[in-house]
């Protein structure tokens, strides 16, 4: 699949990183949204339950807290549902590009030659969904490019490709 990146020649006058044309943009797994929703719910639900309990047992004013918590939960759901599909990434001939965010949009372009090392991380929940996060480390922690929610096999393959390209295109600091 990544071989579609061959379509973009290195000497093209422009690479049009932000537009949908020109780069082989790929989404992350929709299961990432599910995983994130589970985390959000696991965090928010006890708060809601606690607020309900307090409202019933202690003081009626806590219903406001319940409402706020539920509202927050709903907003979180909405944001996650919109956010995850907005994460797209593409392997260019010499750089990996990650786009994310809908309200606050960012685009990071990391040249392979600048890679110091590549991390593949997977927490217990992510593992259940067979997902992993590929994190790209350059000499600057500010770069902060990571691709979350890749199927584990794909993440491994990406890591291998990145390592190989990083090696062949390595540039001195």
């Amino acid at each position: 699949m990544s071989d579609t990146s061959r379509d973009v020649t290195a000497d093209a006058p422009s690479v049009h990183l932000y537009s949908d044309a020109g780069m082989p943009w790929r989404p992350v797994s929709p299961k990432l949204a599910t995983a994130r929703l589970i985390v959000l719910t696991a965090v928010a639900l006890p708060v809601v339950v606690l607020a309900v309990a307090l409202a019933l047992l202690a003081w009626g004013g806590f219903w406001a807290a319940v409402a706020v918590a539920l509202l927050g939960l709903a907003a979180g759901w909405w944001v996650i549902r919109r956010q995850v599909p907005a994460i797209t990434w593409a392997e260019g001939p010499e750089e990996l590009v990650v786009r994310r965010g809908r309200l606050f949009r960012t685009l990071v372009s990391v040249p392979y030659g600048r890679l110091q090392f590549v991390d593949v991380q997977s927490g217990p929940l992510q593992r259940r969904f067979d997902l992993a996060t590929v994190e790209l480390h350059t000499a600057s922690p500010e770069s902060g490019a990571h691709v979350p929610g890749l199927p584990t096999a794909e993440a491994e393959a990406l890591r291998t490709r990145l390592a190989a390209r990083g090696e062949s295109q390595r540039a001195g600091l």
């Binding site: 990183l17 932000y18 309200l103 606050f104 949009r105 960012t106 685009l107 990071v108 372009s109 990391v110 040249p111 600048r114 350059t138 000499a139 600057s140 922690p141 500010e142 770069s143 490019a145 540039a171 600091l173």
Partner: peptide, 29 residues
């Protein structure tokens, strides 16, 4: 040019409203 670690384009909601975006050339710390 050769020292650029990575490139970033950032655009928040207000910036999008005004049709502008910021570009960051990430350097080492």
């Amino acid at each position: 040019h050769a020292r650029v670690q990575s490139l970033k384009v950032e655009q928040g909601p207000v910036q999008r409203l005004r049709g502008v975006a910021s570009v960051r050339l990430v350097s080492t710390p």
